[in-house]
Design a protein around this nucleic acid. Structure first.
Lengths: 150, 150
DNA sequence: CTTGATTAGTTCGATGTCATACTAATATAA
DNA sequence: TTATATTAGTATGACATCGAACTAATCAAG
């Protein structure tokens, strides 16, 4: 009864195992579409700022990206040196900062999106898109479950 | 038409996005079930050796874990220092080495599995298990797709 | 047998990420 | 108002991972 290897647990382990492999392979594939020195996590930050709006504080971006504040400090430094963002003080909070996308940042994102889309389009066929679309809702349920229990 | 933001692409991006978040949250959760200094990737190696059989070469384990050889060298050093594995020479190949599980390694794995199962069992409810089981086959299809195109 | 190519494992340097601890500014409570 | 607690961002050190270069051993071609 307390045996750890029942079928229900196996399904759970198998699920997370497949998720882990898919994540690794897709991230690696994404990385090949980005210029040297730009990590997938950097792309994710730019992408987030474009989609959800910039002018956010580092701590808010860190929460959205699910990384720690110091990781975000580091990532923002890289993006700033690349000229993709500008980090200025928050006029309403002396402690805070405000991250703003530059034109170069938006252009980089457009370019990267195009390369990524092209790259994936030769691999992902319509039947795979159907699978992803069909599965997406279930993944959201599991993601929310984990998000609420961390 | 070459617009990058059509609904099909959105489903693909959304899928990989959810997969990434689930992977991060589940890995973090798993990490809390492991003793200090034992990384989830270390647990994965031990787990693999128990399930698929030990007495494998580092390069084969690296391929199975989808990491580079040097990463495996590092991980095996950690596991060896912990006494979970023993690394000896390959009598049939002067270049190679053979990784062997110790009793302590197997005991660690049993203990970790128990803690992980207990931890997840209070979060993952039957309806979530159903979702994972239902989704598993689809995830395998996508995983294979990426595996064949890397 | 000898030479060139491949493979196993390691070393080195770089990078992303985290935990802990710290400073500075804001918010709350007495 | 003053003291305490909380929050934003940074600094430091640690670790997992990677790519490139290296050594040693095996394999393959002549």
């Amino acid at each position: 009864m307390s045996k750890a290897h029942n079928t229900a647990d196996m399904a759970v382990f198998g699920f997370f195992n497949e998720v882990g492999i898919i994540n690794q392979l897709s991230t690696t594939l994404l990385a090949t579409c980005l210029p040297d020195g730009v990590h997938p996590s950097h792309f994710a930050i730019i992408n987030h700022l474009v989609r959800m709006g910039d002018e956010k504080s580092p701590v808010r971006i860190a929460a959205a990206m699910q990384v720690t504040k110091n990781t975000m400090t580091h990532s923002l430094k890289v993006l700033s040196e690349r000229g993709f963002i500008e980090v200025g003080p928050d006029p309403e909070d002396g402690r805070g900062k405000i991250v703003k996308l530059t034109y170069a940042g938006r252009a980089f994102r457009e370019d990267a999106i195009k390369r990524v889309t092209d790259r994936f389009s030769v691999i992902v066929q319509p039947e795979h898109r159907d699978i992803m679309q069909k599965t997406l809702g279930d993944l959201v349920v599991i993601r929310r479950l984990l998000d609420e229990n961390r």
